[in-house]
Design a protein around this nucleic acid. Structure first.
Lengths: 113, 113
DNA sequence: GCGACTTTTACAAGTTTTTTACAACTTGTG
DNA sequence: CACAAGTTGTAAAAAACTTGTAAAAGTCGC
């Protein structure tokens, strides 16, 4: 369902990060799945609350925040990287991007390429 | 049908654990068989209740739990090892894994291998 | 009816989810 | 910049839910 260098999320509910299996609860998994399905896009709070929780618009609750926190924590060092908060709107799952080496010269292509 | 170092489950209904024969009732056997057929996978409660019992979705009953318990008990020390509960979802039959010795050296392969 | 098996009941124990309360942060305005 | 208003982070308590367990009650075939 989602897979990159560090993280894999299976539809079956199993999640691995850096070969370490995460044990997520149902809600935690559904939340992560919802975000990952929309990787790169902002998912507004009210959308998460309605799809994952079935809450209707305008329900005042901190449940979402608490679940986000627990997800991030279980994901360890990469938690904040994968799950970004978009102030005043919602959250966004960001795909892992391998850090590029910083080029001090403009790249030169070898003849073999 | 299933066989490992400690446990064997025959389609005929006979089950042995560490050379000791278990006498399971029909429901107990069907439940174990259903789990073992899906070894390594989570089998949700409602799937077990519908395939083994023929109950339709949403039936509230503790029968499954009681049968799981009796199975585990009859299996003795390995009961909890083989039959794992996945909270909020169902149960999973886990294959026996021989404990690996901890390597203090990196393994060296002999010429005979 | 008896015996073996299955299901229900009732409560204990364990796990997850939600709420609460407050701290920390972001944003807009003068 | 300082402030206020609103939003999110966090820890811990409370509530809700799920599973474990023992024992009683129910079912079925002989």
């Amino acid at each position: 369902m989602y897979r990159d260098e560090h993280l894999s999320i299976e539809m079956t509910g199993s999640v691995e990060i850096d070969t370490r299996g995460l044990t997520l609860t149902r809600k935690e998994f559904e939340l992560l799945a919802m975000l990952a399905r929309n990787a790169g896009e902002i998912v507004p709070r009210n959308v998460l609350l309605s799809t994952v929780w079935g809450y209707c618009e305008g329900t005042r609750t901190r449940t979402l925040d608490v679940h986000i926190r627990r997800l991030r924590r279980k994901m360890g060092a990469l938690g904040e990287t994968y799950i970004q908060t978009v102030f005043g709107i919602g959250y966004r799952f960001e795909r892992y991007r391998a850090p590029r080496p910083i080029l001090t010269f403009s790249p030169v292509y070898s003849a073999s390429a």
